[in-house]
Amino acid sequence: MAKVETHVYGIYPKTENLRKNINRWERGKIETGEIYEALRQEKEQYFTLLDENKIATFTDPLFNWYDVLRPIVLLSGGSLGPLTRYKENNTFYRLPEFEEVKGLTMDPTKNAEVESNPPFPLYQNAGSNGFSAFLPSPVTIYRMSQVSEKIGKSDFINKITDNYLEICRKFGVKRTTIFESFEYGNEDISFLDRLSKELDVYLITEGKLNEATFKNLGEKLYSVVVSKEGDISLAAKYSKVPGVKLLDAHNTKLERVDSLKKKVEELSGGINAESIVVTNSDYYDFLPRSIADRKVEILSQVGE
């Protein structure tokens, strides 16, 4: 069986304690200093959970991100529009609105209050082994935002990518997890070349892939993570370590470890892969915390 690289990414569900603390902070019942500390402690507990489960690579749990776009939007000069349904879920995000895309409007590594969102820093423990900087794909941001006609799509994507490079440099990270929320269609993802020159890029894709999407990529990414098992050969062709989403982040039903191991064996065997990245199908924030924790344990057992 191929070596399994376990990867956990994206917004992780908060504990009830943290939810209550944030609620108190929102209502002005506790000081910002206290919410910094609550966030720091909860993030530490999360990293301990991952450590105990020997998760190989992971992102910040993003407990202080109100949605997957908001901090990046605020850092890039966008504003927050009305609540908008996220895909087909009963969850909502503030529609980003861009009149222009600015360079980083503040230092994401520092403690700071930001608009309509718990305070920064953007990430914690960025220097630890296995840490990967979670960043929503610029393509996803573009598709989920209202962007002024003055800004061309490629210009938008390039400027967000500039900001991503800056963020990763400031935090000194070695890898980034680029989260794509939609099926690509005919998107050009060559902007990733600029990131992959400096970083190991884990590209979390969504839906069916097609070869045309990758044709302009200069070099292989570190990992292309697919949601359709049939696309694993494309992932093998365009990345050093192909990846697959096997833990369902939209259902509380717990996966069986033996079934997952069998699946990994089949997939990696079919492409003669020495290693394979195994991760969640979406960020775990769609699940109750207790279930997300169990899924991390299951993932850990797949990696054993």
């Binding site: 939810r19 609620n23 109100y66 949605d67 969850t91 995000y93 509380t252 924030d285 769609f286």
Partner: peptide, 19 residues
């Protein structure tokens, strides 16, 4: 229907989603 905990609707607003 079992309730395992709350899930987010938006911002810091949560609801009980049953299984």
């Amino acid at each position: 229907i079992e309730f395992y905990g709350k899930v987010r609707s938006f911002d810091n607003r949560y609801y009980n989603k049953g299984s």
